[in-house]
C-alpha cells in the first residue's frame, strides 16, 4: 500500500551550538510532527556524538532568505566602502613596528 497521498511531516531546519560561547551553526534539516518532536529528532539525527550543547529547530517555511539572483545588487552597498576596514587607514611607521 502506497502512502503517496499522505503528506510528509513538516520540515524543520536544525541549528546547534558546538560549544559554550560559540554561535549556532546550521546542521541540516529534518521532518517532524511538531516542535518538541523536531527537537528530539534533531538530537538523535544531528547530535549523537556531543556535536552540540544546544539545539534550535526552526520551521523551514519561516525562514526568509536572500535569493542568488539579487546577490550582486543586494550586497552592493558594502563593496564601495573601504573605509570600513582597518587597512584603509595609515599608521605611523614607529607604531606599526611594535604591533
Amino acid at each position: 500500500m502506497s502512502e503517496k497521498n499522505e503528506k510528509d511531516w513538516p520540515l524543520w531546519e536544525v541549528f546547534y551550538q558546538p560549544n559554550n560561547g560559540k554561535p549556532y551553526e546550521h546542521a541540516g534539516s529534518l521532518h517532524a510532527a511538531d516542535a518538541e518532536n523536531a527537537l528530539q529528532n534533531a538530537r538523535d539525527a544531528y547530535a549523537r556524538r556531543n556535536e552540540g550543547i544546544g539545539i534550535w529547530v526552526v520551521p523551514s517555511n519561516q525562514i526568509t532568505a536572500s535569493t542568488p539572483e539579487d546577490m550582486g545588487p543586494f550586497f552592493d552597498p558594502a563593496s564601495d566602502k573601504p573605509y570600513r576596514h582597518p587597512q584603509f587607514y595609515s599608521v605611523p611607521r614607529a607604531v606599526k613596528k611594535r604591533s
Binding site: M1, E3, E6, W9, A32, A33, D34, N37
Partner: peptide, 14 residues
C-alpha cells in the same frame, strides 16, 4: 507500512 500508524498518531497529537 507498520510504522504508518506512528506517523499518523504523531501528526494527530501535534
Amino acid at each position: 507500512e507498520n510504522g504508518a500508524w506512528v506517523r499518523k498518531a504523531a501528526q494527530a497529537y501535534a
